[in-house]
Design a protein around this nucleic acid. Structure first.
Length: 210
DNA sequence: GCTAGGATGCTCT
DNA sequence: GAGCATCCTAGCC
């Protein structure tokens, strides 16, 4: 579980956000290709960068576990926005989950961000998570609720596009092959439990579950 | 090491 | 009123 040296990190400010066309494709394709990409977020005081290693796809058709399954509601309306939009919702009354909306406007599909490698802003992530300095870095972003807590993502990000100077998904120059990616059933759902729509970087120590 | 259970509040029925 | 795309802790191997 080695983190890269700070000096070897790219400057996220100089990397443009992924184009809208990247997200407006088949949801499973986007989910797989989001692995290895960077999520960058900047507020008044701090910059955060992390590398996505685990996601789940929620499909527009015949997917009972997807929030879009029963159609548009006030809660899920940003899931029907154009690909590249953030869909953020509260789960279990306590935790936020952040999704990347996929496919064209009106489709109702998204990719849940479940785990990532912390690259920039680790101290602030630790503070946001309420962890002691020196606690394991693995605890920072190894779950959907942890990730939003560490990066301070909440309802105010719902409906925001991932193409802002201070909120964007970027290419880190990492190339993952088919053999680097595994899939499994999605976690924590009660419907459509058999479908292998969770995608993750094989053998990564940063996942939410081994 | 593991598991069971509680926290907590919004959304839809 | 039930159910929920979760996390943490206490208690038990």
């Amino acid at each position: 579980m080695k983190l890269p040296e700070k000096s070897s990190l790219p400057d996220p400010n100089s990397i443009p956000p992924l184009k809208s066309e990247f997200f407006q494709r088949d949801t499973v394709t986007v989910a797989r290709e989001l692995l290895g990409k960077g999520l960058f977020l900047r507020n008044r005081k701090h910059s955060f960068l992390c590398e996505i290693v685990e996601v789940e796809a929620y499909l527009p058709q015949n997917d009972e576990a997807s929030h879009s399954f029963k159609g548009l509601t006030p809660r899920n309306q940003s899931m029907f926005e154009v690909g590249g939009t953030a869909y953020v919702y509260l789960i279990y009354g306590m935790y936020w989950c952040v999704n990347v909306v996929t496919e064209p406007q009106g489709t109702g599909a998204a990719v849940l961000l479940r785990a990532a490698i912390p690259l920039l802003g680790l101290k602030e992530m630790q503070k946001n998570r309420g962890l002691k300095p020196g606690s394991s870095e693995r605890a920072l972003l190894s779950g959907p609720g942890k990730l939003t807590q560490a990066l301070n993502i909440n309802r105010s990000f719902d409906g925001v596009k991932f193409n802002q100077a201070d909120f964007k998904i970027i290419d880190l120059g990492k190339v993952l092959g088919e053999s680097d990616i595994s899939s499994s059933p999605r976690i924590g759902i009660s419907k459509a439990q058999d479908r292998p729509l969770r995608f993750f970087v094989k053998n990564s120590p940063w996942l939410s579950k081994q």
